[in-house]
């Protein structure tokens, strides 16, 4: 209970405070400033909740269409990224060949490729999966490679003293040691994969949360609550992807330093 009060109470107070501030700004904008399209700019929260209840079904189906495509691409990208990382750690040749491109890909605005991929594919499903996968691929590969290399020398020597075969060294030492790196890559990539999927939808797909987001935006002020709901769903999908990965990390690699209880906050 103590930990709840010191850990989560401040966050809760912040969230409630921000929501109240939002609600107040909405009222001020609507009645005091009398701005044009006031409700489009800062909508009432209770109206949003009402919309959520009324159109929950639609939001859910469209949201899950986006999310499942993003997840599929994410999964593919993550697997390929992890495989590349292992290959890079195994072969100097492979590393020299791909490492510069992996690093460069981190410096360029990858999401810019979304329209192009859509232009090539013209199939929204494949385009969404491809973009999500592509975005996931390099962060996962780079971070996992760092993890594979983070093994300290004595640990390798220990394996050597056991006369361990190469696959044993990987199975018992390098792969478990690379999990923190893998997960930090996955956590970077997960929200990006959702972003990529929504982006493809905005380019002109048939279904997905991005599609109804755009549609309701074009319908104008009369649909602004629905528009805001889709924005919130998009944000929630991003958060959800992050939380799911964090949860899996807690289960798969609970031994990491950051999960250890600290000596308490000062």
């Amino acid at each position: 209970m103590v930990s709840f009060r010191s850990r989560w109470l401040p966050s809760l107070v912040w969230i409630v405070g921000l929501l109240l501030l939002w609600q107040a700004s909405s009222w001020v904008l609507l009645h005091v400033v009398e701005a044009s399209m006031a409700q489009s700019k800062i909508p009432y929260i209770h109206e949003l909740i009402r919309t959520f209840i009324t159109y929950g079904g639609t939001l859910f189906t469209e949201g899950s269409a986006t999310f499942s495509n993003a997840a599929l691409g994410f999964l593919l990208g993550a697997i390929l990224g992890a495989v590349l990382a292992v290959l890079m750690s195994l072969s100097k040749w492979m590393e020299q060949l791909t490492f510069p491109y992996a690093v460069a890909s981190q410096m360029i605005p990858i999401l810019g490729l979304a329209p192009i991929v859509y232009g090539i594919m013209r199939d929204e499903q494949i385009a969404r999966v491809l973009i999500a996968g592509y975005i996931t691929f390099f962060p996962v590969a780079l971070n996992m490679l760092r993890g594979l290399r983070s093994v300290d020398l004595s640990a390798v020597e220990l394996m050597y003293s056991y006369a361990a075969k190469p696959w044993m060294v990987y199975w018992k030492l390098r792969l478990p040691a690379s999990l923190p790196g893998l997960f930090s890559g996955l956590k970077i990539a997960a929200p990006l994969a959702v972003t990529g999927a929504i982006l493809v939808e905005l380019m002109g797909a048939q279904n997905g949360i991005g599609v109804i987001m755009l549609r309701n935006l074009y319908y104008g002020p009369s649909h602004n609550y629905m528009f805001w709901s889709t924005v919130i769903v998009g944000a929630l999908l991003g958060l959800l992807s992050y939380l799911i990965i964090s949860l899996i990390e807690r289960m798969v690699a609970p031994w990491q330093p950051e999960f250890r209880p600290s000596g308490g906050d000062k």
């Binding site: 401040p10 987001m213 924005v231 944000a235 999908l237 992807s241």
Partner: peptide, 25 residues
């Protein structure tokens, strides 16, 4: 720190919000 950490947690969640959702807003 007491209130700061909570606020930071809220801000950290911004990180997970897709850019494309921000654009129209």
């Amino acid at each position: 720190p007491r209130w700061g950490r909570g606020g930071l947690l809220v801000i950290a969640s911004l990180n997970a919000v897709p850019i494309v959702a921000l654009a129209p807003i």
